[in-house]
Simulated assay, not measured.
Amino acid sequence: MENQEELEAKILEIVREQFKKDGGANGVNFGSFDHFLNMSLEDRNDFLLRMAKEKKIAVFNSLNSRRITMPK
Rank of each mutant, 00 (worst) to 15 (best):
M1S: 06
E2Y: 12
E2P: 12
E5Y: 04
E5V: 14
E6Q: 15
E6Y: 12
E6R: 11
E8W: 10
E8A: 13
E8V: 13
E8D: 11
A9S: 06
A9G: 04
K10I: 06
I11C: 05
L12C: 09
E13T: 10
E13G: 10
I14E: 04
R16G: 02
R16N: 12
R16D: 12
R16W: 04
E17M: 11
F19T: 01
K20F: 02
K21Y: 06
K21N: 10
K21W: 03
K21A: 10
D22W: 01
G24Q: 06
G24C: 11
G24E: 07
A25L: 11
A25S: 08
N26K: 08
G27V: 02
V28R: 00
V28Q: 05
V28E: 01
N29L: 10
N29S: 13
N29T: 05
F30T: 01
F30Y: 09
S32C: 08
F33Q: 03
D34Y: 12
D34A: 15
D34P: 08
H35V: 12
H35S: 14
H35Y: 14
F36V: 09
L37P: 08
L37I: 11
L37M: 14
N38M: 09
N38F: 08
M39Y: 15
M39W: 15
M39E: 15
S40P: 09
S40V: 11
S40Y: 06
L41C: 10
L41T: 13
E42M: 15
R44F: 05
R44D: 11
R44Q: 14
N45W: 06
D46Q: 09
F47R: 11
F47T: 03
L48Y: 05
L48H: 06
L48N: 02
L49Y: 14
R50L: 14
A52D: 15
K53V: 03
K53N: 13
K55V: 08
V59P: 01
F60A: 12
F60D: 10
N61L: 12
N61V: 08
S62A: 15
L63H: 15
L63T: 03
L63I: 15
R66K: 15
R66W: 13
R66N: 12
R67Y: 00
R67N: 05
R67Q: 05
R67P: 00
R67T: 01
T69Y: 01
T69D: 06
T69W: 00
P71D: 09
P71R: 09
